[in-house]
Design a protein around this nucleic acid. Sequence first.
DNA 1: AATACGGGGCT
DNA 2: AGCCCAGTATT
Length: 346
Amino acid sequence: MKKKIQSKLLQWFEKTKRDLPWRKTRDPYAIWVSEIMLQQTQVATVIPYYQKFLKTFPTIRSLARADLSKVLKVWEGLGYYSRARNLHRAAKTILNHFDGKIPHNLKDLLSLPGVGRYTAGAILSIAFNQEVPILDGNVKRVLSRLFAMTGVAKKTENLLWKYSASLIPEGYAGSFNQALMDLGATICTPKNPLCLRCPLNKLCKAYRIRKPEHFPFKNPKKRIPHIEAVAAVILKDGHVLLNQRPVKGFLGGLWEFPNWPVEGKKDLIEYLKLKVKSELGLRVKGKVPLGTFQQTYSHFKLTLHVFYCQYFGSRRTTRWVAINDLDQLAMSRIDRRIAKMVSGER
DNA sequence: AATACGGGGCT
DNA sequence: AGCCCAGTATT
């Protein structure tokens, strides 16, 4: 059974493996970067970011020496910005404590921020061909179907890791682990899996009972709250007022137009004026609606009402940014859309 | 064990 | 509109 799985899968992989940028290199740094970017992010989304990131930061040293603001700017739009922050921190650690080389043992890799069990296994198997298992969404789906495993509790998770480890063929860890992921991504898909083309269909328990989509067991998802907020584009001599978010937490380190959540049904313009005064110490006039923007995040949905304001007077003025420089700062998707309108791009 | 953490591709 | 994505860190 095990030998059959190994040979079938490796053979299929050699024939049909995807042509991906990070499969053209043996540089552990490049593979590390790709693995961080691929966390919870689809391959097609990652590719252009991967190219640009490696062009901008070709080595660990260049990344470690860069300013975080520049790293965030290159990462802009990819999401989960703590990944960029952790990558940057880890590069410094590698330079200072690991002789500038990616560690090739589990313990040291796991000590790096942003590197968990999956990523450590991916780096060790793909970059160094060590027989270390991986378990991502693809592998979970493939193995849970192959063995018709029920439940997603801790116990099942541990069992999946054990299966993943036990299946690795000696000397072929990198190819085999990538083959498992390719199979999950292209054949053993969440919906409408292409079982007829699957190299493992004769061995697959879920296929035998004709219920591949019953695995893996999905836990019920909870609804996410809907937040409403107002934002101000405050103009003054070709500049706008921006706020930089705290480095830790949601959209950490990114720049944004000042904004405040709205509770209940308020007069939006009155509320905005109040907040601008109390929070920014600014007086503004105008308050022309610029638009309403929607953005769905992983844990809430945002509706943002944006208003143009004219600077009128203030007790303190800080963080004015020239409109022409808006494209230099890292912003989240929703603020970038506002900034483009302000700059006159559409 | 549950939650925070982005944004987009696909149905 | 909902699901899912080459997960990790924190609580």
